[in-house]
Write a protein that binds this DNA or RNA. Structure first.
Lengths: 197, 197
DNA sequence: TCCTTATTGCGACAGTTGTTGCAATAAGCT
DNA sequence: AGCTTATTGCAACAACTGTCGCAATAAGGA
């Protein structure tokens, strides 16, 4: 062992990068086509890469899924209409579609059954930007006095998202437009600032 | 083929029944001990039965899990205090514990990742009695005029359960007592009948 | 261009999963 | 008790999964 850490030179050159992208794309394609009924072997074949390569670079299933997600950003335009009620209705609609996406369902389902505790971190990282944007939306409404300031923004966001996650990934009964409206209305009622009716 | 359906006599006698129970118990034990990191082979070994027997009698994973669940009923005393607010707070507490049970988490996670569409039916059947009792609780409050009658009881129940399911089975961050209270308070605010303040 | 070495492909391996044919067992009936 | 046959155990099987050593390849620098 030499003193100055001999730190092996990384080599993120052309081929490795090409493989990264091919594998990530393969994961996404498979989620779309087969929901979550596929294995590492399928990913390797689809990417035109040897199984061993996939296992070496993505030791856990979570890392492999995360790789797929890294090039997958749904356009989640968190609304900012200036009014809490219309924001919530628009967001509920958006969320219902977001969680109906085969990739999203596949990711959620796969990671839910992953015994590796780090699997849940993958989901959290993936959702983080969306969650932050939604919390910001709640906070804007608080600033406008439309939402009672003492309520937990995190809990409000959970109350709006969790029902859709549960329905699409677990119960697997499609949500109707009416139900989307009902959820939004309940959230609006829950958050209304009593002093500004 | 004879004309009068020769309908093979069923034979639910001693041994078959004993095996049924042993396998069901094994499934529950394994959910408790290893959450959801176990396979059919483990179940068979634990039950003292040959793998092939398990595969023959419970062709799908869903049926196997359902067998375990058949002898597993958590005591979910849906509250009936006579007041909506205290009912909701008590129920939220109960639900948080209910979904923290290793068996419940294991079942949810396992079935979420099952590609067999009938897997979701297993969960629905398992939860049905609890859901019905909770809906009845909401309806009692409606009858008392504490909850706006026009609101969907099903949606209210989802709003109360979904956050806990998502947290325990997916995000895997334990819920704090404070968060339980926050969820309950939001549900109460959401459902309050305007005409009876 | 040539050299060093990180990374990939290849093939082999043990372990696991789900299936099947056949013989042994025991349930249900007379 | 004895007979019939549904059900189980057993063993072998192909398919799949994850790992490893080694040779081939190509990235990054001289």
């Amino acid at each position: 062992m030499s003193v100055d850490s001999p730190r092996s030179r990384s080599r993120p050159g052309g081929r490795s990068e090409r493989i990264r992208e091919a594998v990530g794309a393969a994961v996404l394609e498979l989620f779309r086509e087969r929901q979550f009924a596929f294995g590492v072997a399928d990913v390797a074949e689809r990417a035109g890469v040897h199984r061993a390569t996939v296992y070496r670079r993505w030791p856990t299933r979570g890392e492999l899924i995360a790789e797929g997600l890294s090039s997958f950003f749904q356009v989640v335009s968190v609304p900012d209409t200036g009014a809490w009620a219309s924001d919530v209705h628009a967001l509920a609609q958006t969320l219902a579609h977001f969680f109906s996406d085969p990739v999203e369902i596949g990711v959620v389902s796969s990671l839910a059954a992953d015994s590796d505790p780090r699997a849940s971190e993958v989901i959290q990282r993936h959702w983080q930007p969306y969650v932050e944007a939604m919390i910001a939306m709640v906070d804007r409404a608080k600033a406008r006095g439309e939402v009672e300031a003492g309520l937990s923004s995190g809990r409000i966001v959970e109350m709006l998202t969790a029902p859709f996650v549960m329905r699409t990934a677990l119960v697997r009964i499609p949500v109707t437009d009416r139900q989307i409206r009902e959820v939004a209305d309940l959230v609006i009622r829950a958050t209304a600032d009593d002093r500004h009716p």
